[in-house]
């Protein structure tokens, strides 16, 4: 058992989150994928904090958590307002950027 295991786990979780964003059409699910990616990153921070014996990593993880919380608030508000106007939570329906 070593600290590297945590890092590997973090990498796997991060990749799963990324693939989720690519694959799932439901905006909420895709958003949860983003959250998973953030948490994976946090796990790395905390692991490295322990590895180096410094608390800075934990503090950064704490800030990431706060920013993630605000991001969730705004992101979900956007999803709700899009759902209200377009009647859909699918991110494929929001393709106004299409030329």
């Amino acid at each position: 058992m070593s600290l590297v295991n945590y890092l590997v786990l973090s990498g796997i979780l991060f990749s799963i989150g990324a693939v989720t964003v690519l694959v799932r059409r439901n905006a909420i699910v895709a958003f949860m994928g983003v959250e998973l990616m953030l948490n994976a990153a946090n796990l790395t921070f905390v692991t490295f904090a322990r590895m180096h014996g410094e608390l800075q990593g934990q503090v950064i993880a704490f800030f990431v958590m706060v920013v993630a919380a605000t991001e969730v608030v705004i992101g979900l508000a956007i999803i709700v307002s899009i759902f209200r106007t377009r009647g859909s939570a699918s991110i494929d329906d929001v393709n106004l950027l299409k030329s």
């Binding site: 905390v46 322990r50 934990q58 993880a61 958590m65």
Partner: peptide, 18 residues
């Protein structure tokens, strides 16, 4: 995991926030 990684504060915060 956070708690195991000697970050009990973050562990608690993780439960509360997430």
């Amino acid at each position: 995991f956070y708690t195991a990684l000697e970050a009990p504060f973050l562990g608690v915060a993780q439960v509360v926030v997430y």
